[in-house]
Design a protein around this nucleic acid. Structure first.
Lengths: 165, 165
DNA sequence: GCATGTTATGTTATATTATAACAATCGTCA
DNA sequence: TGACGATTGTTATAATATAACATAACATGC
């Protein structure tokens, strides 16, 4: 999978794709992508930086939506159940899912310089988890895989700014 | 590494080893394992079930220790800095580290039946993370790897109780 | 249409997890 | 011993998340 988040790209395309994808997916499943749910999804997709629940809530409030915590947590729950976003436990923030059709849990790269998250679908990691679990007779149900560090773009920039370090 | 948490074992040995290990480690480093810090470490090691900060706080209070949140969070911070425990982000709970000498971040198996955690040091996972990051030019600084499921012991028990399922 | 059950939202309150800020005390060592 | 840094005490509050119950919207069979 390409590291879209960390590369220059037309992000409006990410948003429109995600929303239309969500609309057709919900239509297929008979699930209701109501205005507040769709708006939360759009806000989550506003960038590749994961966003917190209360930041979402503040933005909803600015737009005249109801803005008590249950509103946003319910929307996040719905979107999560339908695989449209993921929660990043290590930072208590939410990020859109690039591939909601196939149920999965992501592996994430989180750049602590630009604060962007990239979802991976690493066969290496999937296999490694499987092997490690099997060694212990452990049956996997879900997982949290979040790798924090610096993305290539931010590494390159830091070399330009401070080439001798 | 053996899956100690998930196997029958003399847990008093785990506790005493962890504490004496912590004592010598702190002595070597000139760090002060004060009474409240040591007691928090003992409470964390009370079992292989990760324990929450406020549960620790309640137990400290029962024993006459000061019991405002900063007390326990400071102790947890100290113990974490010295590699004596790990936080599990997916459940906001803390668990003792089996191997505090070598700085590392663990990979964990969390059994959702018995609520116990086992730290792994899987070379498979370490390598997989490294390869995945390299593919994206990403420089790893830390990670959160938490695998939730059912341990062998609990799987075996469920087969005995409900052999036809 | 409309009664009914189900799903979604509104509303209030509260639970849970964690930190800020500043004061007081303890330990160490010149 | 006195001065400094580390530790702890204390109060308040921030940040994240859910419980519980009321109301509204939607869907469906009659």
């Amino acid at each position: 999978m390409l590291a879209t988040a960390f590369s220059p790209h037309d992000h409006t395309h990410c948003i429109s794709t995600a929303i239309s994808h969500a609309q057709s997916l919900c239509a297929d499943r008979g699930a209701r992508l109501t205005p507040v749910r769709q708006r939360v999804l759009e806000l989550v997709w506003h960038s590749h930086q994961p966003i917190g629940a209360y930041e979402l809530l503040a933005r909803l409030a600015n737009e005249g939506f109801n803005s008590a915590p249950p509103t946003v947590y319910r929307a996040l729950e719905f979107l999560s159940e339908h695989g449209l976003l993921h929660k990043l436990d290590s930072i208590n923030a939410y990020v859109g899912c690039c591939n909601p059709d196939t149920p999965h849990q992501g592996h994430f790269l989180l750049c602590k310089v630009c604060n962007q998250a990239q979802e991976l679908d690493s066969q290496y990691i999937t296999l490694a988890l499987k092997l490690s679990a099997e060694q212990h007779g452990f049956e996997i149900q879900s997982h949290t895989i979040e790798i924090v560090g610096t993305c290539q773009g931010c590494l390159d920039k830091s070399k330009i700014v401070a080439p001798n370090l």
